[in-house]
């Protein structure tokens, strides 16, 4: 695999809050066009890992690259210099120029959804998706106010319409986003993420709170959009069914550290993974 085929490259990322190691020395690669899963029991540090990638947190140590471009590179500084318990503390130099905020990271082409759905509550389904297109528009505040961007606005509206139609959400377009049933809200959140035209889609527990039927549909849906938009998908999940069904490769973490990686069959039969999920019997 050549380097350009790796969309997301995470190297020795450690996130330490005070004395708590939320993520410990995590390294993973997400190759182009694949569906990669990050799984682990509750509190294993999955969402923290996501937040380090999307710029919500700056990791204490480590490197994150997107399509070969370094997004975050950090080493323990300040108070963390003494407190730091992880490894590789001297491997990376800190460069303040490459720690972009979440909006910049989205601009590079990484879109995400949230574990607890975060749609814009006062907006309609249509506006939720349309607003996500704001970032890619070439208008400025004057051209937008004086309607000099009418062409672009029309294009954005048409694209939104098309996107909603594809996701089977067009019939709800004028309803408030929060009035939709749970499963559709999840789907809308994914549609909203797609509206930012991403290369990499990060899904944070997309099947949380869904029944088996909905989960099954969601699995098909994720595979469909992955093919259709030529996406790379990186997801966090609890639902083993979903993960085993759609993932090409799986990373398992527990207490912040990686405990296994491999294709679904390998993970299913890995004793450490089973132990982490079910607990070790005291014999």
């Amino acid at each position: 695999m050549s380097n350009t085929d790796i969309v997301l490259h995470v190297e020795n990322v450690t996130m330490q809050f005070g004395g708590v190691m939320a993520v410990n020395d995590l390294s993973l690669d997400v190759p182009k066009g694949k569906i990669i899963a990050l799984i682990g029991p509750n509190g294993a540090g999955k969402t923290t890992a996501f937040n380090c990638i999307t710029g919500v947190y700056e990791p204490t140590n480590g490197l994150v690259e997107f399509c070969g471009l370094p997004m975050v590179r950090n080493h323990p500084r300040g108070k963390m210099k003494k407190l730091y318990q992880g490894e590789h503390a001297d491997l990376y130099t800190h460069d303040p120029a490459i720690a972009p905020s979440p909006d910049k990271i989205t601009e590079l082409g990484i879109a995400r959804t949230f574990q607890n759905i975060r749609l814009w509550k006062s907006m309609t389904v249509f506006d939720n998706v349309l607003t996500a297109k704001h970032m890619r528009a070439k208008q400025n505040v004057f051209s937008a106010t004086f309607r000099a961007n009418a062409k672009e606005e029309k294009r954005m509206r048409d694209e939104t319409e098309a996107l909603l139609a594809e996701q089977d959400l067009l019939q709800y377009r004028d309803e408030l986003a929060t009035s939709l049933p749970y499963g559709l809200q999840r789907r809308l959140e994914i549609a909203r993420a797609l509206a930012t035209s991403p290369k990499l889609l990060l899904l944070d527990e997309p099947a949380a709170g869904m029944n088996p039927q909905e989960t099954h549909e969601l699995a098909q849906f994720i595979q469909q959009i992955q093919e259709k938009y030529d996406l790379t998908v990186f997801l966090i999940e609890h639902h083993m069914d979903l993960v085993m069904q759609i993932s090409d490769y799986i990373y398992v973490i527990d207490f912040g550290s990686e405990i296994a990686q491999g294709v679904p069959q390998e993970i299913q039969n890995n004793q450490r993974v089973i132990d982490a999920y079910l607990g070790v019997s005291e014999e």
Binding site: S101, P102, K104, F114, L119, T131, A195
Partner: peptide, 9 residues
């Protein structure tokens, strides 16, 4: 949080 994640500075 959602606004920032959707690229709105």
């Amino acid at each position: 949080v959602a606004a920032e994640a959707m690229g709105i500075s």
